[in-house]
Design a protein around this nucleic acid. Sequence first.
RNA 1: GCGAGAGUGGCGAAAUUGGCAGACGCGCUGGACUUAGGAUCCAGUGGGCCCAAAGCCCUUGGGGGUUCAACUCCCCCCUCUCGCACCA
Length: 827
Amino acid sequence: MSTDRYPFREIEAKWQRIWEERQQFHAVEDASRPKFYCLEMFPYPSGRIHMGHVRVYAIGDLLARYKWMRGFNVLHPMGWDAFGLPAENAAIENGVHPAIWTYENIDYMRSQLKKLGISYDWGRELATCDPSYYKWEQLIFIKMLERGLAYRRRSTVNWCPSCQTVLANEQVEAGRCWRCDSEVTPREIEGWFFKITAYADELLAWCDRLTGWPERVITMQRNWIGRSEGAEFDLAVAGRSDLAIRVFTTRPDTVFGMTYAVLAPEHPLVDRLLTDDAERRAVTEFRGEVARESEIERLAADRPKRGLRLRAKVVNPFSRAEIPLFLADYVLMGYGTGAIMAVPGEDQRDWDFARQHGLPIIETVKRPDGWVGEAYAGDGVKINSGFLDDLSVTEAKRKAIDWIVERGIGVAKVNYRLRDWGISRQRYWGAPIPVLYCERDGMVPEAEENLPVVLPRDVQLSGKGGSPLAEVASFVNATCPTCGGKARRETDTMDTFVESSWYFLRYASPRYERGMFERSAAEYWMPVDQYIGGIEHAVLHLLYARFYTKVLRDLGMVKVDEPFTALLSQGMVIKDGAKMSKSKGNVVDPDDLIHTFGADTARLFSLFAAPPEKDLDWNDHGVEGASRFLNRVWRFVFTHLDTLKAGAVPPTPSTDEGRVFRRTIHETIKRVTEDIERDFHFNTAISAVMELVNATYAFESVSADRMAGAERAALLREAVEVVILLLGPIAPHVTEELWAALGHAASLFEQPWPTPDAGALTRKDVTLVVQVDGKVRSRLQVDIDATEEHIQRLALADDKVQPWVRARAVERVVVVANRLVNIVTRA
RNA sequence: GCGAGAGUGGCGAAAUUGGCAGACGCGCUGGACUUAGGAUCCAGUGGGCCCAAAGCCCUUGGGGGUUCAACUCCCCCCUCUCGCACCA
């Protein structure tokens, strides 16, 4: 391990202290300057920060400091997503109250973030478990309740047996709990929902306009919302004028191919269709079999489909044919109407089922020539379809819907995969849902003046057996705000994703006491210009926050339609081919890293090792390399300090060497700026600075006796200052120190970002590559304004080119300005 | 199955969007300085032919194609990662 390192510990502590004393990153609304709201997803206070945090915050800080130097009024806040199950679990295990556990973790993690030297406005810090925060969430809940955007209903929900709580659909991954990985089971329960489906269309439509978002996140959201257009209509039950079965289809053009229909096993109409006890028993048994299939089993799409034929038949409204009716496990009660028309000719699932049960298959779309396969889902001409024959699929869909509507048996219909957001959690450490149940008035919201409904402190946490709040008599027994009589409080708490759906708004005025946020401040800062966080929130937090923002907009509270203009999804930090985790033993602790190498090195390596959206492969040797580079910059400044301090304003160099070096300096400015602005290519921005440092060392060693001392000193100074400025947002402590060492009194971050000097970038001549038949044979130095004919002549006459063209006929010569010449020959 | 993305040296990665493949860094090899160095500096480092150099040939998952020119565009195939998963 190296011993010769610059004194990063003193320097980092020193500048962190100075920034804090100067309140350098304190943000104030200022209409005269363009604003830039830079936000990294706030952390859950789990105990300690990990390398993934270091990576996100290094990215965010780079952008924030860069924008500062570009003259923006930057808001860069930090807070804590402080409610959640781990605090409660820790409490059960260790007997510490969740509040104490949470606040201790916050204190420790805050100190870690401060040691990283991130440019946060700590004056805006917030924690979502503070009643002064969740008070406003409760107020909005009541407003949502008034508008029917929050409602209570009994339904089958995802139950995590280990977390002992309900989960939203978005929080179930492949049938397992997103947090603890337990298998989720269905459970019929009463709970609260947010009506996110009311915004399905708008959430989807805006996907096209979120041009600053990564395509893959947009795609995931689109798929999650899952819009499908089609029709809904009734199937008459043969011989039963009192009953009809409503089905949904995206392919109304295929109704003539419907050879049977299917109900979900738990469909409410089933019981009314049964003819006798034998059939009733068969259905009960069938339902039992389906229920025993675990969620995981259900995920295997290729397993055989289970079905039970009922005695009742239905009528195909187009062909008037009586067709069989089934219960089958491949039809889900939760989507559409819980019943389908089956079209084996054009749907593979129906095809599979039809073959298993020996049902007829009618093709209603002409197959393309040479097509081999089973169900055909493609485009084509309609056949075997009565009045739809010879139409295209698209035309037939339209005509079929018209037909259905005219006869009053159905309507055109759009369905979404998106479900309403279940927000009830049967746990303690969350924001109380502000409603009461009164013996006289029923369910009533808490009065606004009684908010916040504070989470009681004294509670028994066992981790099982329902909501812990139900056991706290002083909480449960309350007064009805309407009649003043006895009422019982709701004991469910809100999903913690509710808090994170609006924290970015609270940062605009975090101490505001008269509302969720101060309108003028929110209008000034919103939307977030750059949001940065992990891909794991592609459809969780990011969808909820979009929804909540639209709700607040419709409540007249904010003006923006969308919360985040641009999104950067950074990759994971992995080591030895796997995500860092305690069980794998491949964890790098940020504390150790900062102690051994310093925050600047940790940040530099995080930004250099990979572009931000890719996974970052942690490499201890690579960290040493980053440290080595900062030392190299440090050493250059201090070994040449006298020369550098003597350097005056850079002149137009009088020598070629000087001109080339100065061009390198200014090209570096251009490259680094473009890399940051255009694509967040921080890794190549850093490599460009490394190249400039290498060039500076080289220039220093060769220029001493070849040029006037003053000119040399000026050029070296310009180079070093550019290196420091460009590196500032990446490694802020060491660069502040070097900047001061060069005699500057003001902070580096009050300097404007450098701009390339157009004069320094111009070149007199250029090196062209000369190819013969696409192979590089020579190089040519020509004047920048040389004519094409001149270049051709030079290229053909070139010594190294001659042997390749002598025996062959030159067919043509391609000249690409400033790049290359390609001589094309024929044998 | 559907959707998205990726495949380049020993490793992390670059390539101005069709124009010198492998910048920068790690690792490795050799040298310098040094009591010593795992510090620092200098040089080399895709593969092959060659004692060596000059030089030549090959090389971006595989196969075709378009083009003066392909990591980049088009078609087919293979592999991997991620997301959704019987959504009618």
